[in-house]
Nucleic acid binder design. Structure first.
Lengths: 205, 205
DNA sequence: ATAAAAATCCTGTAAAAAGGGGAGTGCTAT
DNA sequence: ATAGCACTCCCCTTTTTACAGGATTTTTAT
């Protein structure tokens, strides 16, 4: 056995360098390389499948979450470990929901990183301490929107009136109004102003 | 001459490792070490003063911007280079205003990083391409609100109606309405929904 | 297969916001 | 001293939201 093979996907060159310098001389780790975009990652996977992928959640304008989902659909055997800074709490949950096996913060130590890699490689879940806390607190306050509600919310926040939204979505104005009512009720908001504020702050928009 | 001495301040261990591995073997760079908090950075400076500090703008719950200001007051000879991810545009301007000599994104290449270090060490300003763009676009799109407008905006975003705001601020409803109109016009917004979205995204709320 | 969830549509009333005007007071910086 | 800005106040009309009911048809998941 050659150790756990690892690929990193991150658009921050400095982070790639950091991880590489940490893992390069580890006996039980086989460094497979890096990708800086979803595209190059998928291309890489056509020829090599690592055991574990370290995946930055925020890949410039792309989303590591979507990429995670795609990879797990095509290569369910690969274990994915989310990677990001502490101030992107809301995404931790999303990447776990989309198939990631764990989560490590970018201020992790070498030992934490190694432990995380071996844990997910063994098929278990690894959540770095703070990440676990975040999941628990998020759990209670999170608001689940339907596909249509998200669409309507987005359009409302962009300044469209019910009438305009109805035309855009090919539905009746009363339908849009119903979605609006449900949104207000889900957010416990008094009006659209406070709803939009909350939605933007929760990064739903 | 021993090269440019460099200290890095960053709460992300992986980034520290990345920069270290990039700079360690450079002949013209003298690696002085790292700090992971403002406190440890200031302690370090009492004994060694590097030529250049690479400073993460976001140090956990501390702010690299405040730290930058303190360092420049005490040690004006040290050149500071801001460091962060691309999605913290609004802070670039602030750290420059607080005495930093330049700015590098964390997805910079080795050459960009070296160029930035040598440029600021020579007393000049270095802005990585995207950062320069951001400064320029920020400049033109920034919206200046009066004291009263900020108050009204805040209350609107909290879900209060004109009537309620009028009572709270001890003014007439028509006055609040005028502020509202001026806000819409300053933001070029069609309605309060889009206004609130923009305001939250610009971190005005 | 069937129950639950989501999406669609309706009627009606009252409240609030958007959009258009205009206008007086007080401060402050040139 | 005076032009500019912030803050205040008013009128009017139209559009849009908010709130309260109810109802039917698709999807989706077990």
């Amino acid at each position: 056995m050659n150790g756990v093979s690892v690929l990193i996907v991150d658009d921050h060159y400095l982070v790639i360098e950091g991880v590489r310098s940490l893992l390069q001389n580890e006996k039980n780790i086989e460094w497979q390389g890096h990708a800086t975009s979803g595209e190059s990652c998928l291309a890489f996977l056509q020829h090599h499948q690592p055991d574990v992928i370290l995946m930055d959640i925020n890949l410039g304008r792309e989303s590591g979450i979507d990429l995670c989902k795609m990879i797990k659909e095509k290569y369910p055997g690969i274990h994915i470990l989310g990677l990001s800074t502490f101030n992107q709490q809301s995404f931790i949950q999303k990447i776990i929901e989309n198939g990631a096996s764990g989560y490590v913060l970018k201020n992790a130590t070498k030992n934490e990183l190694l432990e995380a890699i071996f844990t997910v490689n063994a098929g278990k879940t690894y959540l770095s301490g703070d990440a676990f806390q975040m999941l628990r607190t998020k759990e209670s306050t999170k608001i689940i929107l339907t596909r249509r509600e998200k669409e309507v919310l987005e359009l409302i926040a962009n300044g469209l009136t019910n009438n305009e939204i109805a035309i855009k979505l090919f539905v009746s104005v009363t339908t849009v109004d119903t979605h609006r009512k449900n949104l207000l009720s889900k957010f416990h908001a008094r009006n659209i102003a406070s709803l939009v504020k909350m939605a933007v702050q929760m990064e739903l928009i």
